[in-house]
């Protein structure tokens, strides 16, 4: 009732805008693939479960990549699922490489393209030293931006290159400002002493991009606020800022705030119970690599206590990064 424009849209446009047909077509093709068991199960019940799982966001589990990225809702659901499944990695403070994060992604989506993972890693590592270890939260927030705003970022990269080369990519749409005119006549390498592009011009281009883009874009008010403090910026500087912006994270709505990323009282309680059971069964808890079973029931150190200690933990200890900060080093700027 509060967004009445949907009531006046033509039917097909309304259906397209809300991706109704995407889901309906997918539901029907799923139904066809499983038609043997459906005849006794009931078609209406099948549709009910399908749309319920879409509503809950569990519909993207183990699906092909083309479907996972098909709608903003699917992308948000995938991000949420990824976070929920692997947050213990972050809780344990494990640092992983891009390749290892990619393996985790492939557990949820078998044909997830490596390219996307690498792009996300580039945001964290500022396009440098690609085999570095990253913290879970750094990777997660960079991955979120890269995955959710994929098409937007591609256009941004093109705009950035154009600006860098001294072209104003928006000469048709944005009225040529004096600075734009001026820059156009500059030879491209004239701005080499200054890194990146001018923030205000860059923002103008982004704004007009968002206006005409049919893909999801971050809210331009937030981008404007973000860019207002900078004079010039580089491409990866911009992406890093996007990834770290909690306002944009909130607007996207898939993940909690960075501070709440590992808060999950329900799961903690569940784990406490498991730990209590395990330590009751055998004195040497199978998951405790520290060997200190005395502190198992008391949660004084989340790193040692988590019984969900994954494989990577031991490997990481080999890598001798145990004493390092929870954050990836290169992101601390």
């Amino acid at each position: 009732m509060l967004s009445p424009e949907r009531l006046s849209l033509p039917g097909p446009e309304y259906l397209a805008q809300r991706h109704v047909l995407t889901y309906m077509e997918d539901a029907v093709s799923q139904l066809l693939e499983n038609r043997e068991d459906i005849s006794q199960y009931g078609i209406a019940r099948f549709f009910t479960e399908y749309f319920n799982s879409v509503r809950q966001g569990t519909h993207i589990l183990f699906r092909e990549f083309s479907f996972v990225q098909a709608t903003p809702h699917n992308r948000a659901s995938f991000l949420r699922t990824f976070w929920r499944c692997f947050r213990t990695v972050g809780k344990n403070g494990d640092l992983l490489t891009a390749q290892e994060y990619h393996c985790l992604l492939q557990l949820l989506c078998p044909d997830f393209p490596m390219e996307l993972t690498q792009k996300a890693a580039r945001i964290v590592l500022m396009d440098d030293a690609m085999d570095c270890l990253m913290s879970f939260s750094d990777f997660l927030f960079a991955f979120q931006i890269q995955f959710y705003y994929s098409e937007f970022l591609e256009s941004v990269a093109a705009i950035y290159q154009d600006l860098l080369a001294g072209k104003n990519p928006n000469t048709v749409i944005v009225p040529t400002s004096s600075s734009g005119q001026h820059r156009q006549r500059q030879p491209p390498n004239d701005c080499s002493p200054l890194d990146g592009v001018e923030a205000s011009l860059f923002y103008q281009c982004l704004e007009s991009l968002c206006d005409r883009s049919k893909y999801s874009c971050p809210p331009s008010a937030l981008v404007k606020e973000m860019l207002s403090s900078a004079q010039r910026l580089t491409f990866y500087g911009f992406l890093m800022a996007l990834a770290k912006d909690q306002g944009i994270n909130r607007a996207l709505g898939a993940l909690p705030d960075k501070g709440d990323l590992f808060l999950d009282p329900a799961m903690d309680q569940e784990l406490e119970k498991l730990v209590a059971q395990v330590s009751g069964l055998s004195v040497s808890g199978p998951t405790s690599s520290s060997g200190d079973t005395a502190n198992l029931p008391v949660r004084n150190s989340p790193r040692i206590n988590s019984p969900w200690k994954p494989l990577h933990h031991r490997r990481k200890m080999d890598a001798e990064s145990e004493g390092s900060n929870e954050e990836t080093d290169s992101s601390e700027n």
Binding site: S3, M24, F47, T48, F51, R55
Partner: peptide
């Protein structure tokens, strides 16, 4: 199309549930 719900997916889930 008649209802133009804000969240068509929820709407459809409820709709099919009623059918069941």
């Amino acid at each position: 199309l008649e209802a133009r719900p804000e969240e068509p997916v929820s709407f459809l889930a409820d709709y099919f549930e009623r059918l069941v």
